[in-house]
Each structure stands twice: as C-alpha cells, then as structure tokens.
C-alpha cells in the first residue's frame, strides 16, 4: 500500500474520531488519544503505513473497506469478563427473573438481549444463571440473543474459548468445573451452554427489527461511548423492542437521567430500568415485528 498523506488536513486524530463517530456512534474524547494510538499501532505497522496520517488517509478516502471495518471493530471492542460488576447479575436473578416468571404464562418464551456482548462473557454468564435457576423456570423456554458490531469478536464469542486469565476474572471455580471443558491451556464453554446463545452482528445505530420483542435488555457500559443524540436514539429504539413490562439493565455507573424519558430507574434497584410509559399500554408505541422463524416463514408461504 502506498502511503499518501496529502489529502488529510487537520489533526489526523480528530479526523479518525469523526470517522469512528460516523461509522459506529463511538465518541472518543481527547484524553483517550494514547489508547487510540496504541490500538492503531499494530494495524499501522502491519500495513506498512506512514503513521497515523497514512491510516486516516485510507479511511477517509475509502481506499480499503476491510481496513476501515477492522479499525472500527478494534476501537469498539470492550474488555469484559464473566459476571462483570456482579450486582446486575444479582438483580437479574433476584428481581428481574422472578418477576418475569410471575407475570409470564409458562408457555411464553422469555427473550433476553445482550446488546454489545463483546467476547460473549455476558450472555454466557446469563446462560449459567438460567441453568442454575432451571427449577424456578419450570420448563419455560428462554432465548438469549447476543449482538455486537464486530464480526471478529462475535467469532470469538461463538467459539466460547477463553484464556486462563479470562476464566478467572469473575467466574467462580464451581462454575468453571461445571460449564467449561479444558482445551490445553484454554477453557471452552460446553456445547450445551453455547447452543443457548444466538450471536448476531448488529450496529446499535442501525435497525433492530431482526431482534424482535424482548423481555430484558442488557446494555451495560455501552452508552458511555455515545454522545447524547446517540444515547437518545439507542434508548428510543430499545424501548420499541422491549415489552411494556420488560427491563433494561444498565451498567453500574450509567443512568438515563437528562438523556431519555423513555425509561425510569427502579428506586430500589438503581440499574434496573422499566419503560416510563409502561402503564399507558402498548398503543403508545409502534409494534415491532417478531423475528421470522423458519416455521413462520413456511406457514406464510403456504398461506399464499
């Protein structure tokens, strides 16, 4: 690749930040410059580019779509670990799930969406909790849909293969023994648990129709990367996908105060939010189509 820096005007760091915002909604402040540069250095070296200028030139001039995608994915991957922050998982098992079991008929599938799931630790933690609570679920079906912007990180999540360090951060040893197989110096989530999570690529600034209606959304430590307009957009769209009596789980330090009126926090459980218009009925919000299943598609075709 031939370096060409002539077309980049202004601070390339700022140009890159504008590019990332446009492509993914990601907001990066000036203090993160070192982080951005250190994440981009391996790409710059591998491609033999003329530093930051060279990389930005390729991005803004659409010279390499795969490289642009890689840059966005590299910057949007979050470090995560099993049962991260612990408390939201307490709330899920002690408050949210009992409420859903109480209010949903046994035949109704409970649908949980892990938005921005990164390498899969969050949806797999949820799958472990659900397995632990099998008796309370009384045979109810539960679907876990996990989405992320990055194809690369979704591939890792689907494989469910983690290093020794990754499985020791947050995961209790009895869970390691129960839900993982040892593969050399790595640990892989057992197939029975992996098959419970559907991983899909999704840009949170894009269309959520493929997700369908859900009962719980885990959207933790994601909104912090959006500006206010981006946050409002994401929350408004999530509201349309969430059941009227559903729950939105935010990160421990996150809040919708001053950003959105779509949700209200439970005064007893800060990071558990409910739709603000829940009591006004479903008529207030546009319906979201249920995801098409092969059986539904077949029935539709047969019906003409």
């Amino acid at each position: 690749m031939t370096p060409n820096t002539a077309k980049v005007s202004g601070d390339p760091y700022e140009v890159l930040c504008a590019f990332l915002k446009k492509e993914s909604g990601l907001i990066i402040d000036a203090q993160k410059r070192y982080l951005v540069e250190s994440k981009m250095q391996p790409i710059i070296r591998r491609e033999g580019l003329n530093g930051f200028h060279g990389l930005v030139d390729i991005l803004i001039n659409n010279k390499s779509a795969p490289l642009a995608k890689e840059v966005v994915e590299t910057m949007t991957i979050n470090e995560t670990y099993f049962f991260r922050d612990k408390v939201p998982f307490d709330k899920f098992s002690q408050v949210v799930l009992p409420k859903l079991i109480e209010t949903r008929p046994a035949y109704k599938t409970i649908r949980i969406w892990s938005a921005a799931c990164s390498s899969g630790q969050e949806p797999y933690s949820l799958a472990m909790i659900l397995d632990q609570m099998k008796a309370q679920l009384g045979g109810r079906r539960v679907e876990i849909i996990a989405t992320d912007l990055s194809e690369a990180i979704l591939a890792k999540a689907r494989e469910g293969l983690y290093s020794q360090f990754e499985v020791q951060r947050g995961l209790p040893t009895p869970f390691l023994l129960r839900y993982f197989d040892q593969k050399g110096d790595k640990w892989q989530i057992k197939e029975s648990l992996r098959s419970q999570v559907q991983f899909r690529r999704l840009n949170l600034l894009g269309d959520y129709n493929a997700i369908g209606n859900v009962d719980v959304i885990f959207c933790r430590n994601v909104l912090i990367y959006f500006d206010n307009a981006g946050k409002r957009e994401v929350l408004a769209k999530m509201r349309r996908n969430l059941a009227n009596d559903g729950f939105l789980m935010l990160g421990a330090s996150e809040s919708v105060l001053g950003t959105s009126t779509e949700f209200v926090a439970d005064p007893m459980h800060r990071m558990v939010l409910s739709p603000a218009d829940a009591n006004l009925g479903a008529a207030r919000r546009p319906a979201v189509a249920a995801p098409a299943t092969p059986a539904a598609l077949r029935a539709a075709i047969l019906a003409g």
């Binding site: 612990k86 307490d90 632990q132």
Partner: peptide, 21 residues
C-alpha cells in the same frame, strides 16, 4: 475476585449473585 467470591473481601457491600442462586 476470588476473595470477593468467598465473601471475605473487605469493604465488599454487595452479596454475590452466585451465592444467592
């Protein structure tokens, strides 16, 4: 993390989700 999981981490105010379930 491990000290927290066995319930012995000082200043830990939240109980473990896993203990609860």
């Amino acid at each position: 993390t491990k000290l927290d999981q066995v319930g012995i981490l000082p200043h830990s105010v939240e109980t473990s989700a896993l203990a609860a379930i």
